[in-house]
């Protein structure tokens, strides 16, 4: 990797003040499990790295009025093992536990996990694609086994995060700071489609830092699960994943959240699947219908049509496991 300067800020304000007006010249580093790989592969060549994992403003899991506030620097391993998260937002703990390997979960943070860059092999091999400032998605007519079947185009990356679908299902809010100014963004609006911005995966400005996630408690009586299909059993990104959360009363689904990972450029809320489920008994028929609805509008590429039946099956099974 190239040389860079490294300044250790004492406060969030210090850290933010070092960020510039453009992406990539100054980069934040928390756990570094993604950033270091990007630097070593010369995907990005920042002049400066600003470490933030130690900042006290980014620490801790605390109760809030509606649920929990989770500092952005909280380790994925700590989220997976946290009793309070397991109780109040179990789908998030499950998703965090599915990330990478124990080594990665013990370095990687929740903030970093939702801000990670795509794993597309064209991006990672430094092809001049949209993500590198170009005007082509090389997967579209290329080797696209692992690419998007939903919301694709002009870029066909899939969002690689495991925790993001869980956070969308929970209706979390992202707290963002530029040092002088703070804002809150509902997580569903935090991520962007390639049509909104093909260069980036989220709305974060170059001078902003994710500081915290406000995670409402899962509705009383709800059940949730995170299911992830991979080529191998661990140390892999999702071919398809689903964060599913349902509330059943008197044998009828009152409320459902079904969010897909690994199939679209952002965590994909399968609204049609939710609609198909609400008001029904949670059984084989309704779960199958929800699975079919989840891939409504899917437009697979030449080599990823398998993701359609795979996603149907994963959604169906996730729901049935909650019955």
């Amino acid at each position: 990797m190239d040389n860079f300067s490294y300044a250790r800020p004492a406060t969030l304000r210090d850290a933010a003040s070092q960020l510039g007006r453009e992406h990539n010249r100054v980069m934040l580093i928390a756990g570094g499990t993604d950033v270091l790989g990007e630097l070593k592969d010369h995907l990005r060549e920042p002049e400066r790295l600003v470490p933030i994992r130690h900042l006290k403003e980014l620490q801790g899991i605390r109760p809030s009025r509606t649920g929990l506030r989770i500092g952005a620097a909280t380790l994925l391993a700590d989220i997976a093992e946290s009793d309070v998260i397991r109780q109040q937002a179990p789908v998030l703990a499950m998703a965090a536990g599915k990330v990478g390997t124990p080594q990665i979960r013990n370095m990687g943070t929740i903030g970093g996990n939702i801000c990670q860059r795509p794993r597309c092999w064209y991006y990672r091999n430094n092809y001049p694609c949209f993500k590198h400032g170009g005007n082509t998605c090389f997967s579209a007519a290329g080797e696209n086994d692992f690419h998007a079947i939903l919301e694709g185009g002009p870029s066909f990356i899939v969002h690689p995060s495991d925790t993001a679908p869980a956070l969308v299902a929970l209706g979390a809010t992202v707290r963002i700071s530029s040092g002088s100014r703070e804002r809150s963004v509902p997580i569903a609006e935090f991520f962007v489609t390639p049509r909104q911005d093909a260069r980036r995966e989220n709305v974060l400005q170059p001078n902003e830092i994710v500081t915290e996630l406000e995670v409402p408690s899962a509705p009383a009586g709800s059940k949730a699960i995170y299911v992830k299909e991979m080529v191998r059993e661990m140390w892999d990104f999702a071919l398809c994943s689903v964060a599913a959360m349902v509330t059943v009363q008197n044998g009828v689904v009152q409320n459902a959240r079904i969010v897909l990972g690994g199939v679209a450029p952002r965590p994909y809320r399968a609204a049609a699947a939710e609609t198909a489920l609400v008001g029904k008994a949670l059984d084989e028929a309704s779960a199958t219908a929800a699975g079919e609805a989840a891939v409504q509008g899917a437009r697979p590429l030449a080599k990823n049509a398998y993701k359609v039946p795979l996603t149907q099956a994963v959604v169906k099974r996730a729901l049935l496991s909650l019955a």
Binding site: A140, A141, G142, N144, D145, A298, R299, P300, L301, A302, K303, N304, A305, Y306, V308, P309, L310
Partner: peptide, 19 residues
């Protein structure tokens, strides 16, 4: 992909958007 294709569970090719 090979297994699912072999099992004929894929959507018809007409729905496939090729590059």
């Amino acid at each position: 992909a090979d297994v699912l294709q072999g099992l004929g569970q894929q959507r018809p090719a007409a729905q496939t958007a090729r590059g």
